[in-house]
Design a protein around this nucleic acid. Structure first.
Lengths: 365, 365
DNA sequence: GAAGTTTGTTCGTAAGCTTTACTAACTTTC
DNA sequence: GAAAGTTAGTAAAGCTTACGAACAAACTTC
């Protein structure tokens, strides 16, 4: 630990405070961070020289003393390119500003591409988006299915045919930009964490498969083999269940994946009564609750967020899941448990990649 | 972040390296920590002045250059007092040295004491042990059942009748020593982590009740309500189960607690055949595996350690638990999963309190 | 208009780590 | 057996970083 590490820590602290609290003066920052006004002034000068922070002019309200000069993060000064490879049919991308707002969108049909061809599609989309940016690009974030190590190498992503693909390194060399890659569910939980107040959070991503991302103690859980969140192929309950693609009976994914739910609802017929449809969804919700109960108990989780098609998840499914969780854990722990849909909708992974880049490049989240 | 924070970080880094790697020279420390020899010399001088580090004399082996002066943590320079309140009938305590070895023991029968009387017993035992110490006491560590917040206030410990008891603050004022308090299962996992190589670890403590402690990313999981590890009252499976004291059917504790297992084995009669006894234990192990599977999947845990009576746990129970875990999670995750008994035996909480004091007072673990 | 308040800067200082340079003490080599 | 090479530890000087004290600027309040 060198003095310059302390410096960069303080720099990130100032930037973080400014980012989350919004426009304020150097003196406000000093009070907020615990540093002195002198130090804050120095750090702000550095941040202004880099174009990250701008002066907004004097504070308007009438107070004694010299009027304060308001500062803020220049949220338009840089762009972030985000890529979401978690879709089954398309690779989605976007240009975002530093506030995480999506400015431009682009996508490429995957068309069943795997291996090197899939990588090419991702690289081309990223380059196309970087060219669209009307401000310097801070970095590129990628959320991909599969097991991704901290260096951004995709250890294994069966659907894309990727094995030990150094996604981050190769893309960074090709684009000449900082690149950050992580698992799609991890990206999603980062997106949710950006807004959430809690330091412990689980995000369950339900799509073609079922995965999850976890934040514990304010930090993303990566797992010893970088394979955290893999709850899709955990067997639910002790009474069997539908056959899963992995060959076992009663995996969570066999109960809960979008194709499975859609198939079950379709089997009811178009004129099925609402109660029958609700029961299908409630049963899936109960299964989710059964799997989550031990995790909630062990981690004392205060909040779980679901991501996926709202017309399937938001309703009987989520209600049944919460009820099951309450029934199967200690009351004190789950009394205040929140289980809700994400507010990010389909863009959750894209927003998460932006959080990743902000955190990796600026120390801000 | 001030320069002196960097200093104390580096100080702890040097001490940690010396503590875990053992006797070595200043130059070795410099290589090991990445600091320069000058800085290491300075920090070592400070640590020697405090009596924490001593010179052992010159290195014996024949090498070119000036012979190195070996240093080591003076593991006898201080004592740690550890108290384990997790026992059902007695409060156990010990005096330990800095290596975690137990030098003296003492215990007090609890005799059903609760509330203020139970606190008195703990305080008296701690004072008695502190008086037994033949070197300055670095601090006092306490492991207690219940929910304990980071300040060492017992939010709730029903068995002891404690509610919002500021255990750490009151004991510290009374003894004039630094005190650290935590949940007994958390203390246990800290003890296990001291020896384990992994940064992710779960410890399941099976006694009168069932609890657990978790280390994720090298850090103890406290939980949003400081109630992490409470898996004893998570319902197992979807086929009912024995009635639990909490009123529900099929809680893990109702399957797995020591009283329950003992009762079941006793019911078989003294001349029961070995296979019948093994089946009782295996069924309990399967139930444990069912509850742990989602946790292992979500956290990608590499290792789970059991603490409790070896004659019950070590054998059919642990084998069945591992087999169930493998059957109910993805093969890639649990192929290398280790499930084993702790090597600390009955002293696991005492050892854990020592780790807590070492970590809290010296930044060493 | 004088007094008080708040902001932001200038200047000097203390802490902490580094680089450079040195001495001490050993082994290896010729 | 002397010179050369290597390693450990220390001393001095310098750089970075943050702080405190003091001050000017600009406002409100009385």
């Amino acid at each position: 630990m060198l003095p310059e590490h302390a410096r960069s820590h303080n720099r990130a602290l100032v930037l973080q405070t400014l980012y989350t609290t919004g426009a304020q003066s150097r003196a406000d920052l000093a009070r907020g961070t615990g540093l002195t006004r002198v130090t804050v002034s120095d750090l702000v000068a550095e941040l202004m020289a880099e174009g990250l922070v701008v002066e907004l002019g004097q504070r308007e309200d009438a107070r004694p003393g010299k009027p304060a000069t308001l500062l803020d993060v220049d949220r338009g000064a840089f762009r972030i390119v985000g890529i979401d490879v978690s879709g089954h049919r398309v690779v989605r991308g976007a240009v975002l500003d530093l506030s995480g707002a999506i400015l431009e969108r682009a996508e490429s049909p995957l068309g069943g591409a795997t291996g090197e061809r899939a990588f090419e599609l991702v690289a081309e989309l990223a380059a196309r988006l970087a060219a669209l940016a009307t401000a310097p690009v801070l970095g590129v974030g990628i959320g991909t299915p599969g097991v991704v190590d901290p260096r951004g190498t995709v250890r294994s992503a069966p659907n894309l045919g990727w094995t030990d693909l150094p996604l981050q390194a190769r893309l960074s060399a090709r684009l000449g930009l900082p690149v950050h890659a992580t698992n799609d569910a991890n990206a999603a939980v980062l997106a949710e964490h950006g807004a959430a107040e809690a330091d412990d959070l689980m995000l369950v991503k339900i799509g073609h498969g079922v995965g999850s991302g976890l934040i514990v103690g304010g930090r993303l859980v990566t797992g010893s083999g970088f394979a955290s969140g893999e709850i899709g192929h955990v067997v639910v309950g002790t009474d069997g269940g539908p056959r899963c693609v992995c060959g076992r009976d009663g995996c969570l994914e066999a109960w809960l994946s979008v194709p499975r739910l859609t198939e079950q609802l379709d089997a009811l017929g178009a004129d099925a009564d609402e109660a029958a449809r609700a029961e299908v969804l409630a049963e899936a919700g109960r299964r989710l609750g059964i799997v989550l109960a031990p995790v909630v108990g062990a981690l004392d989780l205060p909040e779980i967020v679901l991501s996926g098609p709202a017309h399937l998840l938001d309703g009987p499914l989520i209600d049944a899941a919460l009820e099951t969780l309450r029934k199967r854990t200690m009351a004190e722990q789950t009394r205040d448990l929140r289980l809700r849909m994400t507010a990010h909708g389909q863009d959750i992974v894209l927003h998460g990649t932006a959080v990743m880049v902000l955190s990796g490049e600026l120390g801000v989240s």
